[in-house]
Design a protein around this nucleic acid. Sequence first.
RNA 1: GGUCCGAUAGCUCAGUCGGUAGAGCAAGUGGCUUUUAACCACUGGGUCGCAGGUUCGAGUCCUGCUCGGAUCACCA
Length: 533
Amino acid sequence: MSIPSFDEIIEPNDQTIAREASLKAISALVGNVYPNKFARTSVSGGEDTITALKYFEKLASVESRMAEIKAGLGEGERPPAEKKDPLNEELKALGTVRIAGRLTTPTRGNFVHLTDGMSKLQIYCNKKGPLALIRNDGEDSLDPENGWALWQLLDHGDLIGVEGYLFVTNTGEVSVHVEKLQFLAKAMLPMPDKMHGIADAEIRQRQRYYDLIGSSLQVESEGLTTREVFERRAKIISSMRRFLEDHGYIEVETPMLTPKATGAAAKPFKTHHNALDIDLYARIAPELYLKRLVVGGFEKVYELNRNFRNEGISYKHNPEFTMLEFYCAYMDVEGMMNFCEEMLRESVQKATGGLMVNYEGNEVNFSKFERISMRDAILKYNPDAEINDRTMIGLFDEFVEPNLIQPTFIVDFPKSISPLSKANPANTNIAERFELFINGMEVANGFSELNDPKEQYERFVDQMSERERGDEEAMVLDEDYIRALSYGMPPAAGIGIGIDRLVMLLTNKHSIRDVILFPHMRPEKRDGEAQYG
RNA sequence: GGUCCGAUAGCUCAGUCGGUAGAGCAAGUGGCUUUUAACCACUGGGUCGCAGGUUCGAGUCCUGCUCGGAUCACCA
């Protein structure tokens, strides 16, 4: 094992050598090249991030009036001063602004944009000044002579802070006229192509930071930028949390490291606890813990967190994925479908602003969810199918699943493949269970929870014998869970919603890797040696 | 795991029949400075994923490997 040198990690090339030289020259001007802070103003109401200023109504209003003025002008004609000046007076009256961000282009011109990852704002530096430099000496002392000198030393991608006043350009873009310039941090590595961003999916996923920078510098992008995808993901998740809390649910955290991998049919990751000298499994589902809490009196409970399954990786599978699971006492499968539908509608509305979502060319309509039994669904797409408990799932996967584009609840599952669900009182071979499909993909799975401890025990025993017959994914008996149910669990319904897949649908992304910040990948190997550690 | 596709400059990509390694952006020097993919001129920059093989000669053909993507199987 050898510790790599810095140069082995950041290999020098013409780009880094030039940036190293620039950093040295900047250091001579400003002192510390990695200062500790930059205080932003609050002209926009809150802290003046670039995004906050960009959406500040007073700036937007000037830009729209300027657009009207320009609409009355010919090609290449400059807006007359008597119309432009009042707008500039208005902007200047907002006072001094201090903003910070990353340079989206080299500073060869005197107009450049800064980005905060989401938005860009143009800044303007005039060679003739006045343009002061703010030294990083802890006192923020001013050097009125060397502002332009610093400007010329800056590289594409460097982080700077500027102070100045707002104005509108002849082309109608509100910008900051920089009076003071402060160096904040260096980009030692070059920026990606500003037209194309990062094309290599491997680099995008391994170096998500670089992908995020690239998409924030990009001039145009088809669909959402990487940053916008994850902003939307955050919105979906927070809207779901709010919805559940508004309906009386409480969030809990149950074990991720568990002595038994149960609650779902899947292969687990195994690990070892040294002090206790026992094997533990990364949880495949929180289900049985959450229902223990229902036994204990949490009538409405949810957990939104990661599950781990040691199975294949595909465009819709990542070894760790985010699941929202919740349980509601005294509710049955019908009530749960209604609640789920309402929650998803709200979430889609909040995240996308509407209920129609375009996914890979299909218009998905979230305003109405279909409901159809598994048997009827099979007969709809394959009228000649011979359906029994054994063939049902296979027929469903083959003929029905790919056709379920619009949100559809499939109901009435065979009981034999639903070991934790209650049977339908009218037909004991059918489980009161549903799965929600959208765009051919399973998004949610819910049921009326089996709360009879003796029947649950029998179902576990059936699963264990499946296991002995070689089904590695048959469910494991959990004795403590039987004991919990024996204290009495109220009738209840529960559901698990695959958050990553929902985010895929709402961001029009084909791969689960595009909606997980750091998806699972093989570890990188350096050339010529084994990975250390 | 199977099948197919890909890996060339920091980034995005060309590279014909096997015959001197190319462009744009980025970088360096100089000019210009109300531009918005800024522009103009010049310059530097390559282990063609890795290891073999065929050949007078391989980015190009063959074999193996690594990593990635698509897809199928399993799964949510």
